[in-house]
């Protein structure tokens, strides 16, 4: 699988402080990619370099294999965390203006905007001024502005903040749909449950450095601790030869395999003890656990 975006040894320094410190990672084409990290880790600095808002001191950013240029940037849609629109402008003209800046003609822009306004069932908003809209409504407009020039890469910085559950779902389904149509998406957040739900791949940055990257499944595999959930007719409350007891789980007990043993060893020990196994499954760490552990380690 080729990469839509390659970050290679990118460094960005602000008066002696390294906001991005030799960061390298790949965003696979067609992925929903989580850019994770605690506050101040350098996520926004990285995004600003990718969107050419600022330039890196050194290193390379390749979009579709080519050095990111002024024309290539048209192929990127960016929804910043700090959102804003011209308050006095009408929704329609504002969207036309923003898409013209992305290189669309007036007619193309008009067509696309109509499509999106209908999609979000806000057809009659064209002549509404931005200042008349609520924050959540403005966010919809902003989302449309991000995607209507059909970029091949969309960068969303905390896209769901301020949205009610209905609109969050609406936006989520649009993100999935765009992704199915081939758009790669970078999703920056520190809400891990959203990442787990939405992202296929992630990179974790802290203090400007990449400390972890890969597909969500691989990362979870990498950090698994040999924990299993065992559901038996007589609940397990103590350890055995091949395993230690950890705690009661939601449904059964959590055990940890002792080193040198396999899941098979545990299973046969439990069965031989005369207990009936109803369910047995591996417990993978949540991204939240991995995130906290990794960040604290640095």
């Amino acid at each position: 699988m080729s990469s839509v975006l390659s970050i290679k040894n990118v460094v960005k320094e602000y008066s002696g402080y390294k906001a991005v410190n030799n960061a390298s990672f790949e965003v696979p084409r067609g992925s929903i990619f989580g850019l994770l990290g605690p506050n101040g880790a350098g996520k926004t600095s990285l995004i600003r370099i990718i969107t050419r808002i600022t330039a890196a001191d050194s290193g390379q950013v390749l979009l579709n294999g080519k050095d990111i240029s002024e024309t290539a940037i048209r192929d990127v849609g960016y929804l910043p965390e700090e959102r804003g629109l011209y308050k006095k402008m009408m929704v329609g003209e504002q969207l036309v203006y923003l898409s013209q800046l992305k290189g669309l003609s007036k007619e193309e822009a008009g067509r696309e905007i109509k499509y999106w306004l209908e999609k979000f069932e806000i057809r009659d908003w064209w002549t509404k001024k931005i200042e008349e809209l609520s924050k959540g409504m403005q966010q919809k407009v902003q989302f449309i502005a991000t995607v209507l020039h059909k970029p091949s890469l969309i960068i969303l910085d905390e896209p769901f903040t301020g949205l009610d559950p209905v609109n969050t779902n609406l936006m989520k389904s649009e993100i999935y749909r765009l992704n199915e149509e081939g758009t790669s998406i970078i999703f920056s957040t520190h809400r891990m449950e959203q990442v787990e739900e939405i992202c296929k791949d992630i990179v974790l940055v802290e203090k400007g450095q990449v400390i972890l990257s890969g597909s969500v499944t691989d990362v979870k595999q990498q950090f698994k601790e040999g924990l299993f959930n065992v559901y038996t007719d007589r609940p397990i409350t103590t350890g055995g030869l091949s395993y230690d007891y950890r705690q009661a789980g939601d449904n059964g007990s959590i055990i940890k395999i002792k080193s040198g043993n396999t899941a098979n060893d545990v299973l046969s020990e439990i069965i031989q003890s005369g207990n009936t196994v109803k369910a047995f499954n591996e417990v993978l760490p949540t991204l939240n656990d991995i995130f906290i552990k990794q960040v604290n380690r640095i």
């Binding site: 969107t51 050419r52 808002i53 002024e70 940037i73 048209r74 990127v76 960016y78 910043p80 700090e82 959102r83 804003g84 629109l85 011209y86 308050k87 923003l98 800046l101 992305k102 902003q142 502005a145």
Partner: peptide, 13 residues
């Protein structure tokens, strides 16, 4: 103050 500037300069210099 509006913060629109970040959107603007992701499209123009």
């Amino acid at each position: 103050i509006n913060r629109i500037v970040e959107i603007m300069i992701s499209s123009v210099k």
